[in-house]
């Protein structure tokens, strides 16, 4: 029951913030990707940086339970899948989360995106076995690898002599700095 209450509270907060930063408006996503308005890029970089500093700070101070972390595997399909997402992201101006939230705000094009998405996810369910047989789902770079060694986890580290918490805070600060120095546009007027 607690889990469902948390799902409702955190989910609703996430959806509302996505809407307020402009992420439910495909115009902002398209103009981020054609580099004519980097508002969302700056927002996302700052968000990732803020999240990283808080989370790794929380790990160092014991506020965050390290068991809550969930690192995904690296494999060639991550890059290929990322490229496929990138193409559709550029054409539509939606990703899975912003497509659903945009549809919820009344955007009709987002409803078409979501229906297409349900079919695309279904197509992956249908082709998973043959995709797997190609080997592009096999782990690379150690699989669930992080930059440094995060205490209390078994995640392999890219840099084995660097504490993962320090790497996380440094990376967070770098993200925040990039968000700050990135201009509002790189193209056009």
């Amino acid at each position: 029951m607690t889990a469902l209450i948390l799902a409702i509270v955190i989910g609703a907060a996430f959806g509302a913030v996505l809407d307020r930063v402009g992420a439910t408006n495909p115009g902002y996503i398209i103009r981020m990707l054609n580099l004519s308005n980097l508002h969302l890029m700056k927002t996302i970089l700052l968000a990732i940086g803020t999240g990283a500093v808080l989370m790794f700070g929380g790990l160092l101070t014991g506020v965050v339970d390290v068991g809550h972390l969930s690192v995904k595997s690296a494999y060639v399909g991550v890059f290929v899948g990322g490229m496929l997402l990138g193409v559709g992201f550029a054409v539509a101006g939606f990703c899975p989360g912003t497509g659903l939230t945009a549809a919820a705000t009344g955007r009709k094009d987002a409803v078409f995106f979501v229906v297409g998405g349900l079919l695309g996810a279904g197509a992956y369910m249908g082709t998973y076995a043959s995709v797997k047989s190609t080997g592009i789902l096999d782990d690379i770079l150690g699989g669930k690898t992080t930059i440094g060694v995060i205490a209390g986890t078994k995640y392999p580290a890219l840099l084995e002599s660097v504490p993962g918490e320090v790497a996380g805070i440094v990376l967070g600060i770098v993200f925040i700095a990039i968000a700050a120095v990135l201009p509002m546009r790189l193209r056009g007027r």
Binding site: L69, S70, G86, F94, L118, I150
Partner: peptide, 28 residues
């Protein structure tokens, strides 16, 4: 685009939320 995005997300094992935001935040 929705079809391609979700096929790609499932192939990658996550999307903008899970991989890009949550993943980079954890230094994955």
């Amino acid at each position: 685009a929705g079809f391609v995005v979700l096929y790609g997300s499932r192939l990658a094992g996550g999307c903008t939320s899970g991989h890009m935001m949550s993943g980079m935040m954890q230094t994955a």
